[in-house]
Structures are given as structure tokens and as C-alpha cells.
Simulated assay, not measured.
Amino acid sequence: MTIQEFGLLLVAVAASAFGQLFLKLGALQLGQVTSANALSLIVSMATTPTLIVGLLAYGLGAIVYILLLTRVNLSVAAPSASLIYVASVIIGVFVFKEDLSLARLVGMGLIMAGVVLVAAR
């Protein structure tokens, strides 16, 4: 993977991670879904700015990922895109104050090591 291809990967991962962040923030604004409020919350999703930003970020991530796929084998691009999991854990810990256990740290390390091994030629 060249530096330009790696840059595309990082942009795709970052956009998807920001999508995750804004979708979570929007979900917190909506509140918990129950059978009594499900329909109104579904309608609210279309008008919640935070959710719209999250979807747009995901869309941007998908576009950049498609650009990456024009240059890189799927067998490299797809596993490399798993870095979104690492970014999501980091966002969860720093933004939403979620716990970072040893198991999660090890899992993140394994994901990163796997990406390096798959992306290496």
C-alpha cells in the first residue's frame, strides 16, 4: 500500500469514525426507543441535525473507500478498514467515558497488527 493509498484509507476510516460519533450523539438526543415511541423517533431521525451529519460523514467515508478500492485489492482494503473499530473504541473512551479494559486494549493491538500484516506486501 502506497502512502497515497494509506492516506485514502485513513480519510475513509476517519470519516466513518466521525459518522459513528455523530450517530451516537444523535441517538443520545433521541433517547431510548420503546414500542410506544418507535414511530415518532423514526420520524425524528430524519430531522435531527446530528444524525444527518453522522450519515453524511458515513457517506463521505464510503466514497473515499470506493476510491481506495480502485487502487487497492479488496483483500487488503477490507481488513484495513477494520481500523474503524480502533477509532470507535478511542472515541468511546475519550468522548463517552466508556471503560477501556485490558481485553479491549489487546483487541485493538491485534486489529492494528492484523492490518499491518495484511497491508504489507
Rank of each mutant, 00 (worst) to 15 (best):
T2V: 05
I3P: 01
I3C: 13
E5V: 13
L9W: 11
L10T: 15
V11S: 04
V13H: 10
V13D: 11
A15I: 03
S16W: 13
S16H: 15
S16I: 09
S16C: 14
A17T: 10
A17G: 15
A17K: 12
F18P: 03
G19H: 05
G19D: 07
G19C: 12
Q20P: 06
Q20F: 03
L21E: 00
L21S: 06
L23G: 05
G26L: 01
A27T: 12
Q29G: 00
Q29M: 06
Q29R: 06
Q29V: 08
L30A: 09
V33E: 10
T34F: 08
S35K: 06
A36Q: 15
A38D: 13
L39G: 09
L41S: 06
I42P: 02
I42E: 14
V43H: 07
M45C: 14
A46L: 11
A46N: 09
T47K: 09
T48G: 01
T50G: 01
T50K: 02
T50I: 00
I52V: 13
I52S: 13
V53D: 00
V53K: 04
V53Q: 02
G54S: 03
G54K: 02
G54D: 01
L55G: 13
L55K: 11
L56D: 11
L56Q: 11
L56A: 15
L56T: 13
G59S: 13
A62F: 14
A62T: 09
I63M: 11
I63N: 12
I63D: 08
Y65F: 15
T70Y: 10
V72I: 13
S75Q: 10
S75C: 07
P79L: 03
S82L: 04
S82Q: 09
L83C: 02
L83P: 06
I84D: 07
Y85R: 11
Y85H: 13
Y85L: 12
V86D: 05
V86P: 03
S88C: 11
I90C: 11
I90F: 03
I90M: 05
I91R: 03
I91E: 12
I91A: 05
V93E: 08
F94S: 02
F94R: 00
V95R: 12
K97F: 10
K97E: 14
E98Y: 05
D99S: 05
D99C: 01
L100A: 10
S101M: 03
L102C: 01
R104S: 11
L105I: 04
V106Y: 10
G107F: 10
G107H: 06
M108A: 02
M108I: 10
M108H: 05
G109Q: 02
L110R: 07
L110F: 08
I111A: 00
M112W: 07
M112G: 05
A113R: 14
V115G: 01
V115M: 06
V115Q: 01
V116R: 01
V116P: 06
L117R: 03
V118C: 09
A119F: 04
A119V: 03
R121C: 05
